[in-house]
């Protein structure tokens, strides 16, 4: 079943287009990562889907319900970017209020369970005005899942959190996926997206420039596979021949007595390289292949 479907979704502020007609489909059960630099239009896109702002044109549906139909709101959870909590309410008070507002009032035990999931159980009765930035962020996530929604939007869920809290939230996102929920998240933490997301979209200047699974993105960018070979000393008589072969096989060649680093555009070249070394009576001890990370792919955009 399709969790999110958008057709030519656009948002402009005056004459300035912020989101330029996005077509996107997210299947139920996916953890979908949305990447892009600041101002790329990620939050605007999420805000349109969640009803915070209105699209200028285009259409979308969430869980099969047409955009603008409020009946779907009870099935979605949202942690918006830049949202304040009610200073006078406690963490528990927030969860009770928001769950009731979603039409699924949570008991105190249920609220405590969710607070435990985000690591706030010790601060259940503390007013939000006394919360640190990280605690507010955790409570923001807790309120997004308190009513057990099917589709959860998390706008930079781990930014500003300490390492322990990040692991906590990452585990929570994995648990949500295991229980069949769909998570649509944005993040600046590329490692996190790489670890958690089943599919990724890279957004640039209001458009999706690349979309796919991590493997698909890697395959697309495999034009830059960096290979490091550790080898036995190259006989002097073979050095020129081997260098000539390597220079024709790839780019960014670095050679020393026991190691060669080279960037090739095809996996086949790795096997050919090992054979070339063997033909030159050089033993290859170790081959290290550095595949493009999400960071490399992201920076290339």
């Amino acid at each position: 079943m399709i969790a999110i479907e958008t057709k030519q979704l656009k948002k402009s502020y005056g004459a300035v287009p912020v989101v330029k007609g996005i077509d996107l489909t997210v299947e139920q059960g996916e953890v979908f990562g949305f990447l892009g630099r600041n101002g790329a239009g990620k939050s605007t896109f999420i805000n349109m889907l969640t009803g915070i702002i209105h699209p200028s044109s285009g259409s979308f549906s969430l869980l099969g319900v047409e955009g603008g139909d409020d009946s779907v709101k009870k099935d979605i959870g949202v942690m918006p970017d830049y949202a304040n909590l009610y200073g006078s309410l406690t963490a528990l008070g927030h969860l009770k209020f928001f769950s009731a507002l979603s039409g699924r009032p949570a008991s105190k035990a249920e609220c405590m369970k969710v607070l435990e999931k985000v690591g706030l159980e010790m601060h259940a009765n503390k007013k939000a005005v006394k919360f640190s930035f990280g605690m507010k962020k955790k409570l923001g996530i807790a309120q997004a899942i308190i009513h057990d929604p099917e589709l959860i939007f998390l706008d930079e869920p781990t930014s500003g959190l300490d390492a322990e809290a990040v692991l906590h939230i990452q585990k929570l996102i994995r648990d949500l996926q295991k229980s069949g929920k769909t998570v649509f998240m944005t993040s600046h933490n590329l490692d996190e997206v790489e670890k958690l997301c089943t599919r990724i979209a890279i957004m640039k200047e209001g458009e999706i420039v690349k979309i796919g699974t991590m493997d698909e993105l890697r395959a697309f960018y495999r034009s830059s596979i960096t290979v490091k070979l550790k080898h036995s000393p190259i006989p002097i008589s073979e050095q020129a021949k081997l260098r000539e072969w390597l220079e024709s096989a790839g780019t960014s060649l670095e050679m020393n007595d026991s190691c060669v680093t080279i960037t090739v555009d095809d996996e086949q070249k790795i096997a050919e390289m090992v054979r070339a070394f063997q033909q030159c009576r050089v033993d290859v001890y170790r081959v290290h292949v550095e595949e493009p990370s999400l960071e490399d792919i992201f920076l290339e955009q």
């Binding site: 009803g51 709101k73 949202v78 949202a83 009610y86 979603s102």
Partner: peptide, 11 residues
């Protein structure tokens, strides 16, 4: 911006 929590939950 507390309104963001409200509009994402109810009409």
């Amino acid at each position: 911006r507390t309104m963001r929590f409200l509009v994402t939950r109810t009409s």
